[in-house]
């Protein structure tokens, strides 16, 4: 697999050379492959948001490099906009960025900044709306007349419409109801599977991350603590708890069963897997047939 994003000794310091100096990202090096689904977890203030804002050049790193397809994104500072089209970024509470008269025009803002027009633009908008589950009749409404969940979808569609090679989502499900979270998450996953592009998801919900991510980046106090396969990361439950994170509930239960001496495999992430593990255990012990 070829790497699409590579970070080399990346650091960022807020308010350098002032009394308020604060290191937000400290010497991070890692490489993300084309087509991967990456999760980023970390306590509030661990530097996640700063890290992802450096991926598309919204923040210029104080030290180190971000390589996109092997090229330093800050090699030509004047062309940083092109990087932003390749690395799409959905911020927390993206619905507050809506501004156009209609949802359609708002979704078209990104792709038309890229220079798309006519049929191409129309297709990009309609496809993005479809991916995020926005009904076609909503496209002609004012974004301010939509419900909270619909606004969120419209805002996400506005980034997806640029068809970025890498899509970064910062807590896309925050503030939605449980049903809305579920649906939005599965739509993002669906999008990832169809387009086969790289998705980076920042989230506080371990359950969400466990469900979708291939690999997980764990941040603590501006540093990279772990970067490994989802199963591997969540089998380090005790370490995660030490830095104020937790593992998905079902993983925790399985972990505790294992600590009690039951023969259960590591890194169980979903209820289905847990069911399979427990029932095979019970079968082996002859409790059920």
């Amino acid at each position: 697999m070829s790497s699409v994003l590579e970070l080399k000794n990346l650091s960022f310091v807020y308010g350098q050379n002032t009394p308020f100096e604060k290191k937000a990202v400290d010497n991070i090096s890692l490489s993300i492959n084309q087509g991967e689904f990456i999760g980023i977890i970390g306590h509030t203030g661990s530097g996640k948001s700063t890290l992802v804002q450096m991926l598309n050049g919204l923040i210029q790193p104080t030290e180190g490099q971000v390589l996109l397809d092997g090229e330093d994104i800050w090699a030509k500072p004047k062309e940083i906009r092109r990087v932003r089209f390749k690395v799409g970024m959905v911020f927390q509470y993206p619905e507050y960025q809506l501004f156009e008269e209609t949802v359609y025009k708002d979704i078209a803002f990104g792709p038309s900044n890229m220079g798309k027009t006519g049929v191409e633009l129309d297709q990009a908008v309609k496809k993005a709306a479809e991916f995020t589950g926005l009904k076609p009749e909503l496209l002609l409404k004012s974004p301010f007349d939509l419900s909270g969940g619909e606004k969120r979808r419209a805002a996400i569609a506005g980034v997806i419409a640029m068809d970025p090679q890498v899509l970064v989502l910062d807590e896309p499900t925050a503030g939605l109801d449980p049903m809305g979270r579920e649906v939005l998450l599965s739509q993002i996953l669906q999008y990832h599977k169809e387009r086969k592009n790289t998705v980076i998801l920042v989230s506080h919900s371990m359950e969400d991350i466990a469900k979708v991510a291939d690999r997980i980046i764990v941040m603590n106090k501006s540093r990279l603590v772990m970067f490994d396969k989802t199963k591997e990361v969540f089998s380090h439950g005790r370490e995660l708890e030490k830095i104020g994170l937790r593992v998905p509930q079902i993983t925790k239960i399985m972990l505790e069963l294992k600590e009690k001496g039951y023969n259960i495999p590591d890194g169980i992430l979903t209820v289905d897997e847990a069911f399979a593990a427990v029932s095979s255990l019970l079968k082996r012990e002859g409790k059920i047939w």
Binding site: L58, F85, F91, Y96, Q97, N113, V159
Partner: peptide, 16 residues
């Protein structure tokens, strides 16, 4: 603070 956030979001969509 809000202005900062919105500007970043629009820049991410290619606003120049």
């Amino acid at each position: 603070e809000e202005t900062d956030k919105i500007m970043a979001a629009q820049k991410a969509r290619g606003a120049d």
